[in-house]
Design a protein around this nucleic acid. Structure first.
Lengths: 134, 134
DNA sequence: GTAGACATTCACGTTGACGTGAGAGTCCAC
DNA sequence: GTGGACTCTCACGTCAACGTGAATGTCTAC
């Protein structure tokens, strides 16, 4: 199929599909006219790409892990054992990012709480004292 | 003091300090030579800026709320009542971002778990079925 | 044979908080 | 008076996943 149909069937813009090819995530055939010719399986591949993007992986990492993924119809499963290492590293990155945001929210909460207690009574020591190093 | 000293005392790059001025977070005096002249209080102001940046606020928001913040020596306290609204909105943004990352990590966990169960026994239905809409 | 949908390749724009020179002027101790 | 540290203002680069034209070529139905 051509790019327009793949875009419609996946809900992904043509621009994004070309970008995925540029990032080596898709490798469609080419007609003599230069038009891209996608296989049926690319519909599922695009969905898997979206799943991995939603999982916070970069296109670079996805290009690395996609060839080692098995898609058994309704689930995405890593086929190569060393893949788990890469995925775990990304999981750690996510955890760090989550912790950073939680810390940020705690800072905001402290400031907001200090503001509320300020309107009730003069001064308090419940507010924020020190910011993180980062 | 000049920018170099403020940079050393705060641990913030000169470039960042100039950027803060550009974003209206700092308003140092100017010598005839054009050199910036910072006040003692700017050391604390810079720390407060870093605190708010660490709390996930944009420089635009910080410029908005900074004049309404009281720094009672070891805590940052909102002085204007309407400030709490702005801060709460940013808190909500943070919560959304956190939820997104948690969902992303859950996806990764499902994929990793599927890979582990794959090495143990043939097929399973514990893996990931559908990706989020986003 | 032609209108118009569909496709192609550039290539810059977006977002935010700075990094990183380039080229030039200023300050101060010796 | 001079050399080296310090500072100034541009102004482009960074990172990521695309959005958005612009100018042009291809396919297909009538």
């Amino acid at each position: 199929m051509r790019i327009g149909e793949l875009a419609r069937r996946t809900g992904i813009s043509e621009r994004a599909l070309r970008y995925y090819e540029e990032q080596q995530l898709l490798r469609p055939e080419r007609r003599r006219s230069g038009y891209r010719e996608y296989a049926e399986g690319d519909v599922r591949t695009v969905r898997n790409i979206r799943t991995l993007l939603a999982a916070g992986l970069s296109t670079y990492t996805i290009a690395e892990v996609l060839p080692c993924m098995t898609d058994d119809g309704d689930a995405l499963v890593p086929a190569c054992p060393e893949l788990t290492t890469v995925l775990s590293q990304d999981r750690d990155r996510l955890t760090t990012a989550i912790d950073d945001l939680l810390a940020a929210r705690a800072i905001l909460d402290a400031i907001i709480a200090a503001g509320r207690s300020e309107t009730a009574q003069p001064a308090s020591d419940t507010a924020l004292a020190a910011a993180p190093a980062g």
